[in-house]
Amino acid sequence: MKRTRCFITILLLSALVFSVQGSVIKVLAVGNSFSENAIEQNLYQLAEANGDTLIIGNMFIPGCTINRHWECAQSEEAAYQYRKIVNGKKVNTSNKSMLECIRDEAWDYISF
């Protein structure tokens, strides 16, 4: 799981480095508690240091496997916790489907 968290972090950092300075970057993570660690810790500050504004979406099911995500995608089950961070403010909602979360923004990057 450390490899997954590291990969997600590197992917998102790369997106920030190669983005146009001063842009709004929208990132959605689909995962479990590891996605929370990977996307919510320090990513906002890194974007800010580059002059970017970051909108972070994190939809997760604690302990969730990739197979479980696939099942949720097929059934549209409202099983996700959804945390959205805009301008440093976190808003948490429960019982969201994958489709609801994806449709919430025009995401630039979606990571699994």
Rank of each mutant, 00 (worst) to 15 (best):
D52P: 05
I39S: 08
E71I: 06
R103C: 06
D108T: 04
C101F: 02
I110C: 00
I39D: 03
N37P: 06
T93W: 05
A47L: 10
K96C: 08
V91W: 05
F34A: 14
C72I: 05
L12F: 12
I66Q: 10
F7T: 15
I10M: 13
N42R: 14
D52Y: 08
N42T: 15
K89S: 13
D108S: 02
S23V: 12
I85C: 04
T93M: 04
V24L: 12
C6D: 11
T53P: 07
N87R: 07
T9Q: 13
S97L: 05
I110G: 00
D104C: 00
G63L: 11
Q45F: 11
L11P: 08
V30K: 02
R3P: 14
A73I: 02
S14F: 13
W107V: 05
N95T: 11
A106T: 03
L46V: 13
S75D: 02
A38C: 09
S75A: 03
K96T: 03
K96A: 04
S33L: 12
A106P: 02
G88C: 03
Y109P: 03
S23T: 08
Y80Q: 00
Y109G: 02
S19D: 10
W70F: 12
L11E: 11
F112C: 03
H69G: 02
N32A: 08
L12Y: 14
